[in-house]
Design a protein around this nucleic acid. Structure first.
Lengths: 103, 103
DNA sequence: CAAATAGTTCGTTAATCTACGAACAATAAA
DNA sequence: TTTATTGTTCGTAGATTAACGAACTATTTG
């Protein structure tokens, strides 16, 4: 079934958020981590903390991750609900049979 | 298995290309079309032909589509090989069990 | 060959993105 | 309550992106 309307907008927003090397790496990093404080994330990247914080904010805004204040630290993780939604949308996109046969 | 190295770069490039409403729509449009001349694509969007041509070029550069000159026209379609690659990479990304359980 | 058709490329402008230091909260510890 | 520690927000500068008209290329048709 073809993606359209809100679903199309949503998958585009997910794709856009994932379309930056650092953000994509943050996602794959979070996928495999149990503990995920800001500092843990920051220390695996060469970027300034302001930059990492900004990327985390974007991923949070689009819903792929979530953050939780814990003492003076902030714990980040994948947002499972939206991660599942993203999974479904991309699945739908790629399960569409490729009709075009021009080339 | 975690995405890394070239695969991580590749999925990020795919995501980036898909992260624009017009480009994502072009992809879903191509998925369901048999014939796919430039003009057919252009006429379903409000944008100038220069703009559409530019988006098609980006999608072609990243490998998701391909174009073929046919007389004075240009036929576009999904690049099946790379589309399959994209499918596999996203599949791998989303099949990673979500380990993080912080929030 | 001239004119029409179909797209691409060029040049430019406006907007968005990226990155970072510095300033600014908020909590914890001394 | 002062001082660290942990992050976020602000302001800014540079880079990239997006959009479009105009000019250009190539093919087809008259």
């Amino acid at each position: 079934m073809k993606l359209k309307g809100k679903n199309l907008e949503q998958i585009t927003l997910f794709a856009k958020a994932m379309g930056h090397p650092t953000r994509m790496e943050i996602l794959t990093f979070l996928l495999e981590q149990e503990a995920c404080y800001f500092g843990d994330i920051h220390e695996v990247f060469p970027n300034a903390k302001a930059t990492i914080s900004q990327h985390l904010k974007e991923l949070k805004n689009v819903g792929l991750i979530q953050g939780e204040i814990e003492g003076p630290k902030v714990k980040y993780c994948i947002n499972k609900d939206n991660w599942t939604l993203a999974k479904q949308l991309f699945n739908e996109l790629f399960s569409t049979p490729v009709k075009s046969n021009c080339c």
